[in-house]
């Protein structure tokens, strides 16, 4: 028996909220960033599940694009982290306090 689509969607929703909580909860920029990746993956899972449900490939293609974008984002994000680290040996977003707010 095939697993109902809604199970996958629920799972993806759970993962998404865990990711979102992580973004709000953690301070380490890298872990924060990883939480964002988790959120993207949750979205991907939902997309693939829906794609299966409708029997179209649109969802899978979307996932393909999301992955590409995520890769590009990671390149930039990690470059930024490395740059910041060079200047100040910390990536705790709370340490970034030369700006207020």
């Amino acid at each position: 028996m095939l697993v109902p689509t809604s199970y996958f969607v629920i799972l993806s929703a759970v993962l998404f909220t865990i990711g979102a909580t992580g973004v709000l909860f953690r301070k380490n920029a890298i872990i924060l960033f990883m939480s964002v990746e988790l959120m993207l993956n949750a979205a991907n899972l939902a997309l693939v599940a829906f794609s299966r449900e409708f029997g179209t490939l649109d969802g899978q293609i979307f996932v393909f694009f999301v992955m590409t974008v995520a890769a590009a984002e990671v390149a930039i994000g990690l470059a930024l982290i490395v740059t910041i680290f060079r200047n100040r040996a910390s990536i705790d977003v709370d340490d970034i306090h030369s700006l207020k707010g």
Partner: peptide, 22 residues
């Protein structure tokens, strides 16, 4: 908040989506 959001989302999906397999 995260947990609450999760519960709400899950309930919303669980109650509205059809449980039939594709």
């Amino acid at each position: 908040m995260g947990f609450g959001l999760m519960v709400v989302t899950v309930l919303m999906i669980a109650t509205s989506a059809s449980p039939a397999p594709p």
